[in-house]
Every structure is written in C-alpha cells, then in structure tokens.
Amino acid sequence: MNDLKALEDAFAELERRADNAVLRAGASKSRRPRLVPVAAAVLVAGGLVAGVAVLTGGSGPGGSSSVREGSPSTPMTTLPVRHSLIPTSAKELEDRFRVVLGDTATFTVTDTGGSVETDGDGNVKPGSGVAIVGVLTVAGHSGGYDLQIIKSNPAVGPHCEDLDRANCNIHKRPDGSSIAVSTEPLAGPGNGVTHMIDLVRKDGVEVLMHVSNERDPKGESQILSPKPPLSTDQMIKIVTSPQW
C-alpha cells in the first residue's frame, strides 16, 4: 500500500508535464489559434484524430489544436477500403442516413469530420471513420444530432458516457453485436439532454449516434425542443438498421 505522498508525487509530476506543455506551446510560433468549429472538435474528440491528423499533416500530441477550420473529411476517400460498411465519405454517410431514416425524420448536415484511414492492405484502421453533425427534425420537434460510423477497436466494446449512471444500459444482442444506451444531462442552462446509442457490431463496425433537444448535441446551446426528437428506442432501430 501507498500513502498520500505517492499521490502527491503523481500530482506534482502531472503539473510539471502541464508546465512543459505550456512552454512547448508558447515556443511554437507556428501554432495556429484554435478556430475549430465546435462540431469539428467533437469529431476530433471522437477518435477520428488519426484521419484528421493525416489531412493536416499530423501534429503530434497537440494535434487537435491544429485542425484547420472547415477542413473536415473528404480526402483519402480514394484509398482502397475493403470495409464497405464504413462509409468512405461524409456525403456517403449522409446519403445512407437519409435512406435509413426514410420518412421518420428530416435532417440537415452542418458539419462533417474524420476520414477513413486504411493500412497497407486496404483495411480500415481502428478508430477511423466518418461523421456528420446537424439538426434533426421529427414532427416539428428538432434537436442536434451527430452520427459516426467508425472501425471500432476490437478490444473496446460500447459503453456509456458514465457507467455509474442508473440509465446506462449495455447488453449483447442476438446477432452478436453489443449496444450501449443512455441519456445524459447536458452542461449549461436549460434542460438539455442527449440520448446516446453506441452499437459495436460483430464485424467491428461501430455506429455511434447522439440526439439531443439542444441545437448542439454537446450542450451549452439553444434548447430547440422539450425533449430530443427521437426516443432511444427509435435510435436503436436506426443504428441497428440492415439498410446501412
């Protein structure tokens, strides 16, 4: 067993690393200001860093700071992609989403991100894929959404944002896939919530979707409806649709 001194030493070391990072950032004159649109930041945070970093030339540990404004996802789509279930572009994802939704809802796409990155054999690398962000409307009720289809890391199954929450439900499905379902309160004023469905299929394709009652599914934005335009049951039907 340790005492608190070990924890204090860890804190001190982490502080030292933070100071070094600040110094490095200050020394880098070429560092661009953060102009990343909020939604694009979501996508960078969404494990699509690898693809974005390639698009921007890569930038090491601070890479997400250098993502260019409005530089989402289109390149690299000419690479061979064997995993046809993963869309090769945001436009393809948008088109598929429209088919899957049918008459259930209408949606806009306000931002896109990520890209499909492949290895030397043309296989999609874990963590890479594409995403779209926008506003979804059902029967006059609107809310922000994001949708990502990526190659999952096989070692990591689906999980909720907060495993401790009572409403976090993770279970196996008869087809061998695993799914996490949760509803998260959003930070900021108002009663923003977001539903999250995270499906990891047996073939390693991960479909992740958030639908909120706020304009920005990250929260701290305008409340558009009393509740998200889709229920979690509707979202489960969408992410598990055979039409993808």
Binding site: V42, A45, G46, G47, V49, A50, P61, G63, P126, G127, I150, S152, N153, V156, H159, C160, E161, D162, E184, L186, A187, T194, M196, L208, H210, K218, G219
Partner: peptide, 14 residues
C-alpha cells in the same frame, strides 16, 4: 471532461 463527448477519446491513438 465528464461530458459525453469526451468519452470518444478511448479510440484516440495518443
């Protein structure tokens, strides 16, 4: 840090 969007860092390669 606790918000849902940060959960996706689990797939980040860094």
């Amino acid at each position: 840090y606790l918000s849902w969007r940060r959960r996706l860092f689990r797939t980040a390669p860094r």
